[in-house]
Design a binder for these strands. Sequence first.
DNA 1: TATGAATGAGCCTTCATTCAT
DNA 2: AATGAATGAAGGCTCATTCAT
Lengths: 223, 223, 223, 223
Amino acid sequence: MLIEAGGAVFAEVGFHNATVREICRRAGANIAAVNYHFGDKDALYREVLAYYQGRALQKYPLDLGVRPGAPATERLRAFVRSFLLRIFDHSSDAWHGKLISREMIDPTSALDAIVVERIRPQAQHLGGIVRELLGGEPDVETVRLCSFSVVSQCLFYHHCQPVVCRLFPEQKFSPEQVEKLADHITSFSLAAIKACSRRGNEADAKRATTPSASSRRRLRASR
Amino acid sequence: MLIEAGGAVFAEVGFHNATVREICRRAGANIAAVNYHFGDKDALYREVLAYYQGRALQKYPLDLGVRPGAPATERLRAFVRSFLLRIFDHSSDAWHGKLISREMIDPTSALDAIVVERIRPQAQHLGGIVRELLGGEPDVETVRLCSFSVVSQCLFYHHCQPVVCRLFPEQKFSPEQVEKLADHITSFSLAAIKACSRRGNEADAKRATTPSASSRRRLRASR
Amino acid sequence: MLIEAGGAVFAEVGFHNATVREICRRAGANIAAVNYHFGDKDALYREVLAYYQGRALQKYPLDLGVRPGAPATERLRAFVRSFLLRIFDHSSDAWHGKLISREMIDPTSALDAIVVERIRPQAQHLGGIVRELLGGEPDVETVRLCSFSVVSQCLFYHHCQPVVCRLFPEQKFSPEQVEKLADHITSFSLAAIKACSRRGNEADAKRATTPSASSRRRLRASR
Amino acid sequence: MLIEAGGAVFAEVGFHNATVREICRRAGANIAAVNYHFGDKDALYREVLAYYQGRALQKYPLDLGVRPGAPATERLRAFVRSFLLRIFDHSSDAWHGKLISREMIDPTSALDAIVVERIRPQAQHLGGIVRELLGGEPDVETVRLCSFSVVSQCLFYHHCQPVVCRLFPEQKFSPEQVEKLADHITSFSLAAIKACSRRGNEADAKRATTPSASSRRRLRASR
DNA sequence: TATGAATGAGCCTTCATTCAT
DNA sequence: AATGAATGAAGGCTCATTCAT
């Protein structure tokens, strides 16, 4: 199929290195097939991204079988594991992640749709977990920052794999290792969020009176 | 200058899209200048990356003026701020980060040199801070994972800026905002590392007797 | 046709001076035609040589209508005439000879094929005639040397035409002249071969006794 | 020296493959030296040919030490040996022959000078020998054709070396072999010329009466 | 509807030549 | 007188695209 072949080739060598010839060859199609069916190479690329929205999520749902009513800590662990499993899944449609990475560097209009249809739901899912973990009535910015902190630790293994492999050649990403990573990210984040929660509650309490010494200090340091 | 022009063009459109013509045009040089001075386009690319090794670090040293003997918490804050400032610095050589990002997706042999000469020193710098924060005699893997957690939170704003901007258009990355991010990442990480430290010490203490309940639980979860 | 145009251009200016552009222009084809049909310029060159294997021989077969059972003297005359007619044929595919000449100066891998498929058969054809003319059981080296002597006299008019024309501007190579040349080369060679034959037979006869005076004389002269 | 370097490079790779850079590099000269001293590449080429006129002949004079008064047979042998020795001399300025070969294929104005200054004297030298061998008052055309027959047998080993090497890989061109070749060519030619001589004399005798049967037969065959 | 032969713009690279020193 | 850095025209080749079938 032209879209599958296109996705694979785009992911492997990037949009510009990808040749229509190679895509058609892999799809067992005629060399004119891309232009015939999609108009041109760019249009095929857009279709490739659009077609695969949600595909990876089908295999690894955000909750990984953990019920919505489960404790936030378990739901966080499930979210992290789901994310890492997607990253380290090198099965046939694994190139999807690479396509998204490329969009990060050279965003096309396709990225808008991806953000709306795919990333925002994940962000909201994670935001709910984090909000619950923070407790009380956390302000949106804290939730956002903590969510970023969680998701960034996962994405790191996606974006920086080439560097990690070169820095620590002994580091393997076997399934057991993935579980270990998930373990670390989860506990690391839980501890941090809990601390944020405390700090937030303190801040809530004192906000009525005066800015805390600590926040003044931070403000000074930032200049 | 040919290297600056090359860096800008490579960053903007990637190695393959970049044309020698455009690079020479921007450098105000002849079409043959690249081949004359560097041999070919590949060599120019390698030189571009090599030339800028350390450039960004000169502007934002890892310690940002904090003396080596300062407390680890301050040195961590300096490391994080330095990292974020590099990421959000949109001055002339801001394209350097993009080049590295591109290397992450399509690593070339140039990445090897970058890792050795530039990234490894940073990793060791951060590792020293994290080790001190963990206290005791932390095992190398814990140090590594915590370092990844710290650095990943910074890199996130580099890799995922297009997504963040689309998800939260109100999020601006003004200098004050950067300080706020640095503040969050630092305190988030400090709390988490402190927790890791406690857990590690407990593990050390109990290792002589039996595997702790918590570690057994983690083990079970990982299957 | 691309091969004809290529042959003409290659012959006129040599492989390196020949431009794909000019070849395509003459063939009335697109600039990309060479690469499309043959892969690259080198491949076209090989095809040009390969395609014309036997072409010239079709027009002027080695025996020129003389039956295989004819006397060796007649077959020699036919061989010589055929050779000269090929050389002095300035019809459309006359550039073939020039290509071969160029191969003599800068042999490419194409020459190997030409030797095997085209030149060797001619050498064997001529060798058979010479062997019959020598009579008895001539040794292979004598056959070879005499064959060289015959063929070289023909080739001379191919290789050295520019010199001959400059040395003797009055020398024209009209069809009658070609016949005269063929006449000379044939009778010159027949007389010489007959002499070789006599000498060879003498040598055979005396070899049982002692080295002949003549062979000793030749040996002395060669020092 | 620029001319020597130029000669070597031109001979090795031909005029067009030769690069001014390589010539200057070998001569230890600046890249602009060719243009500075000679104007352009073509002018250097002409100078190279002009400079080397007569060089090879100094090493192997036409008579090879045989006195002008010696019998024609000896002078012929000397001429042939001298020619072959030049051809098979692979010393430093051996590329001269290659340059001449290239001139045969793509004659430039340089060839005119070569013919006048170098080749014509050789032709006259050989013509004198042949005329003496023919005896009587041979007509110029017979002398010319016989001279061609002699010289062509020598040149063959120059022009066709690549083919001979491929056809008969066992054929080596050691000094002894060269003597053997000289021996063959000399005796082959002597026998043939002697036969021509007889035929010529017969023709002289009969010319007063009627065309001979043999010449009529030749005339018929040539149609 | 689908093909694939053919197109032509544009790429990297080479190389003789120039020109300021 | 001699240099060598820089030039720019032109080469082979790639590849998305077209068009007759």
